[in-house]
Amino acid sequence: TTTLTYTDEEEARKAAEELKRRGITFTYTKRGGTWEIRIK
């Protein structure tokens, strides 16, 4: 499992869109002031 952490929502959203485009499965979690993208 790879976890990407972002403090900028815009960056996190761009990363999530890129992963979706590649067909990669991930979970997206907001934790306080950070956003976590966990790639399975």
Rank of each mutant, 00 (worst) to 15 (best):
T2S: 09
E11Q: 10
R22N: 07
T7N: 09
I24D: 02
R21F: 06
E18H: 08
R38V: 15
K30L: 05
R21M: 08
T25Q: 14
T34W: 13
Y28V: 15
K20Q: 11
K30M: 06
D8S: 14
E18Q: 09
T7Q: 08
T7E: 09
K14P: 01
R31D: 09
T34A: 11
E18W: 14
L19F: 10
A16T: 05
I39W: 04
A16W: 03
K40D: 14
Y28E: 06
D8T: 12
A16N: 02
D8C: 08
I24L: 08
E18A: 09
G23K: 04
E11R: 05
Y6T: 01
Y28P: 02
Y28Q: 06
F26N: 01
K40L: 15
L19A: 01
R38Y: 09
Y28N: 02
R13K: 14
E9S: 04
T2Q: 11
A15T: 09
T25R: 12
G32H: 07
G32E: 12
R21G: 06
K40R: 11
R22F: 05
A12I: 02
K40A: 13
E10Q: 13
K40W: 15
L4M: 10
E10F: 11
I39M: 04
E36P: 00
K40P: 14
D8M: 05
E17F: 11
A12R: 01
K20M: 13
R31E: 11
T1E: 12
Y6E: 00
T34G: 10
G23R: 03
L19V: 01
T34L: 15
I37G: 00
Y6I: 02
G23S: 03
Y28T: 08
W35H: 04
I24H: 03
E9R: 06
K14F: 07
E18Y: 11
Y6H: 01
E11W: 04
G32K: 08
T29C: 12
E9L: 05
T29D: 06
L4P: 01
E11P: 03
E17P: 00
T29P: 00
T25W: 12
K40S: 14
T29H: 12
G33K: 10
G23H: 04
T27F: 07
E11N: 06
K30C: 13
Y6K: 00
T2M: 13
Y6V: 01
L19I: 02
R21L: 09
D8N: 14
R21N: 08
K40E: 14
L19K: 00
D8K: 07
A16P: 00
F26D: 00
T1H: 12
G33T: 11
D8P: 01
G33H: 10
T1L: 12
I39S: 02
K20S: 11
K30I: 07
Y28R: 02
R31I: 15
Y6N: 00
G33P: 11
L19M: 04
T27N: 05
E9V: 05
G32L: 06
A12H: 01
G23A: 03
R21P: 01
E11C: 12
E9C: 07
E9T: 02
Y6C: 03
A16Y: 06
A15I: 08
T3S: 05
K14S: 10
R13G: 04
K30E: 13
G33S: 12
E36T: 07
K40H: 14
I24C: 07
T5P: 02
T5C: 10
I37C: 00
E10K: 13
G32Q: 08
A15H: 06
K14W: 06
L4D: 02
T34H: 14
T1P: 09
K14E: 09
E18P: 01
A15V: 14
T3F: 10
T27Q: 07
E17S: 09
Y6D: 00
E17R: 11
G23Q: 03
I39D: 00
L19Q: 01
E9A: 07
I39N: 01
R21D: 06
I39H: 02
K14H: 09
A15G: 03
R38M: 13
L4A: 03
E36W: 05
K20R: 13
K14V: 07
T2P: 06
R13S: 06
E9M: 05
T7I: 08
Y28H: 03
K14T: 08
T5E: 05
A12M: 07
K30S: 08
E11H: 07
E36K: 03
R13D: 05
A12D: 00
D8L: 08
E11V: 06
D8Q: 06
R13I: 14
T29Y: 09
R38K: 14
A12V: 02
T1D: 13
E11T: 12
R38Q: 14
R13H: 08
T1V: 13
T7C: 10
Y6R: 00
R21K: 11
E11M: 09
T7R: 05
A12W: 09
A12S: 05
E11I: 05
T5Y: 15
I37M: 02
I37E: 00
E11G: 05
T2Y: 12
R22L: 14
A16D: 01
T7V: 08
E36M: 06
T34V: 15
G33A: 13
T25P: 13
E11L: 08
W35R: 01
R22K: 11
A16E: 02
L19P: 00
I24T: 03
K14D: 05
R38P: 00
A15P: 00
A15K: 13
E36A: 02
T1G: 12
I24F: 07
A16K: 05
T7H: 12
K14M: 10
Y6S: 01
R22H: 08
K30N: 10
R22Q: 11
E18T: 08
R38C: 15
K40M: 15
E18R: 07
L4S: 03
I37K: 00
R21Q: 08
R31F: 11
L4K: 04
Y6M: 02
T7F: 12
R21I: 08
L4C: 15
T3A: 04
T5H: 09
T27D: 10
T5V: 14
L4T: 04
E18C: 10
T34R: 13
T34P: 02
K30T: 06
I37S: 00
F26T: 01
T34I: 15
K14N: 09
E17K: 09
I24K: 03
T3K: 07
I39V: 06
R22G: 04
A15R: 04
T7G: 07
W35F: 10
G23Y: 02
T27V: 09
D8Y: 05
I24Y: 09
E36R: 03
I37F: 03
G23I: 01
Y6Q: 00
R21T: 07
G33M: 10
E10H: 11
E10T: 14
T34S: 11
R13E: 07
T25H: 14
A12T: 01
I24N: 02
I37L: 04
L4H: 06
E36Y: 14
R31A: 10
T7D: 09
I39L: 07
G23C: 06
Y28K: 06
R31H: 12
R31C: 13
Y6L: 02
A16M: 15
A16C: 12
T29K: 07
T29I: 13
T3D: 03
Y28G: 02
R31W: 07
E10G: 13
A12Y: 12
T1M: 13
I24V: 09
E36Q: 05
E36C: 04
R22C: 13
W35V: 10
E10P: 04
I37H: 00
T29M: 11
T3N: 04
T3R: 07
E9F: 07
G33V: 06
G32I: 04
R38I: 15
T1I: 14
L19N: 01
E10Y: 12
D8W: 03
I37W: 00
K30D: 11
G23F: 03
K30A: 09
I37A: 00
T27K: 04
E10W: 13
T25E: 15
F26M: 02
T25V: 11
G33W: 05
E9W: 08
A16S: 05
T3H: 06
E10M: 13
R38W: 07
L4G: 02
E18S: 10
K14I: 07
K20A: 12
T5L: 13
K14Y: 06
T7Y: 13
F26I: 03
E18N: 09
L19S: 00
A15N: 03
T2F: 11
T7S: 09
L4E: 03
T2D: 08
E36L: 11
A16F: 08
R13C: 13
G32R: 04
A15W: 05
F26R: 00
W35S: 01
E11S: 13
